[in-house]
Design a protein around this nucleic acid. Structure first.
Lengths: 328, 328
DNA sequence: TTGTAAGCGTTATCAT
DNA sequence: ATGATAACGCTTACAA
């Protein structure tokens, strides 16, 4: 590969001049400029980003940290991040942890070793305190997943209230016995949503049955498993509130296999308003999160942080209920 | 941020020694080593990757180039890539083009500027010849999307035969009038699959009706649009073969809205065997691609290329038919 | 076992 | 308008 030196030699100028041409500096004679450009052409020269980054101590790249990319919900958030990033001339690189601590460490190494300027983090495979100290050390913004700390700003919805609203909606539709398919013990968003559920039932004087709470995770198979457990109980609830659309869809699927139809026999409510929730039959009534905007705002916070603005506050964006066919 | 110099000073040694400690070199006295490690601790030092990469002229990172991450099909391929990459000590970074030429250029810049060592490309937003010259210049492996050139190896299925087999399967189920929901004019995989369709009909002496071929793309909405166009024709076909599961699901959805049920009134066949094809109602009979293995093999080819092995041949992996409920 | 110093490919400062 | 040259942070001969 040709380097800046080769180009300089070929064009009969100094490396400084070549650098000026590459970076569109004002003060280069038209003649010299074209000579350099010609040399660049013939040598197929392309500046080495590592050298440039090293010198400038910035990369104009940011990292998006996800558990997995096979998740419709996050992919829409990423779109928001990407669009805002483009506007600010950042390149977005996505890394996935797949729930694996080693992968997480590798990704964090990208921050430490300055391969990226900052990160937007949507997964939390790390002890709280450790994560907090990372946030203090590097430009980091959290998206979606809430946490108790505040070492980094977070952009997302109010999980408690969103859940509260959804449950109240079900209650207004005459449901009292409502099963919860939650996101799993480790998830703080799930924890907050459970609190919202409890509060809503309490407000309406409905007793809470702990046997109706299932901690199977945010996946499709969680819905399958949840139904299998639920069917072992002696009475079916009137509704199921799943904390992810795919879980809701898994539930609908298993119910239908068992000859129970939604929404005639039981109502099912999802969460996230991902594309599938509209695609499936019946379409899923769900709590919409403004995914795209969450991503956009997160990137906005990160970029201002990278431009020296002191760490900004967290942002809570509005959720809303989407009525479709799975709740009657 | 502390640099290697600061550590050297703090530990009272040279930078070379610090470097040795960082890289676990053999010949460092235990005593010196622990002194350096202590200095690293107190200074919160972490080596700057840019300097290291610049010196080594390699990054141990590879790029995965996708159109979008909101695609179940590709996310499974990426998993295969990631797992193999981990085994070989590479970090995977994903960039998306979103069909935008500028984004593609940004991503390619990562190759040119040596931010990554090589790339696995699954999108083709570029004139053939231009892409070929890129492939000659950098370590690149293609996955999934076939192309006529061979400047880079490609890992994927035999699209022609896969389609041929699927159509013959439909014919064996008594379908003769089969509509095709294709991937769009620009897609070479779609083109090959159409050829497979034509060949299968020809073999069984079934005349081809050009009016049954729809070029709406690989998306859910393509399925919706396809049905709307199809319903304007005077007679419904006996089957629809969609070149993507999500397109098949879109078709099923629209059909059901129009009171036409699958598979009773019409059969629908998908392609890819993505998770949703199993999740929806009815579940979709489809052509399975070994996504995970495609990703794994692609990474295998890339890594051998990065290790100096001359460019290897393309690999064709087997497809298979998955019978579910959408074809009767 | 350790240190010195060159060099990786840039950019930026300071002369000229 | 252009050129020398010193960084940027690291690794690695080569010397000691």
């Amino acid at each position: 590969m040709a380097t800046i030196k080769d180009v300089a030699k070929a064009a009969g100028v100094s490396v400084a001049t070549v650098s000026r041409v590459i970076n569109n500096a004002e003060n280069v004679k038209e003649e010299t400029k074209s000579a350099v450009e010609k040399a660049i052409q013939t040598l197929h020269y392309s500046p080495n980003g590592l050298g440039r980054n090293l010198r400038r101590l910035e990369t104009k790249r940011i990292l998006v940290l996800l558990n997995t990319i096979s998740n419709q919900f996050f992919s829409r958030v990423v779109k928001g991040i990407e669009d805002k990033a483009r506007e600010e001339n950042y390149t977005v690189m996505i890394c996935t942890t797949r729930g694996n601590r080693k992968n997480l460490n590798d990704s964090i190494a990208l921050l430490q070793s300055k391969v990226v300027d900052g990160a937007i983090v949507m997964t939390r495979e790390m002890p709280e305190e450790e994560f907090a100290s990372l946030c203090r050390a590097y430009p980091i913004v959290c998206a979606c997943e809430p946490w108790e700390g505040n070492a980094a700003p977070r952009v997302g919805i109010d999980d408690f209230t969103a859940s509260f609203d959804a449950v109240e909606f079900l209650i207004h539709h005459g449901k009292e016995k409502i099963a919860l398919f939650e996101g799993g013990k480790g998830s703080y968003s799930s924890y907050l949503r459970e609190l919202g559920y409890r509060e809503a039932l309490k407000k309406h004087g409905i007793p809470i049955e702990e046997a109706l709470l299932f901690q199977e995770g945010y996946t499709y198979n969680a819905g399958i498993r949840g139904i299998d457990k639920l069917l072992q109980q002696r009475e079916l609830p009137q509704a199921i509130f799943a904390f992810a659309d795919s879980t809701a869809i898994g539930a609908v699927k298993r119910l239908s296999e068992k000859g129970i139809s939604v929404p005639e026999d039981i109502s099912v409510m999802g969460f996230d308003n991902t594309a599938v929730s509209e695609m499936c039959l019946p379409s899923i009534t769900t709590v919409a999160q403004p995914q795209y905007e969450i991503g956009w705002k997160a990137m906005e916070l990160l970029s201002s942080q990278l431009n020296g603005v002191p760490k900004l506050k967290s942002i809570t964006l509005p959720h809303r209920l989407i009525q479709r066919d799975s709740v009657k």
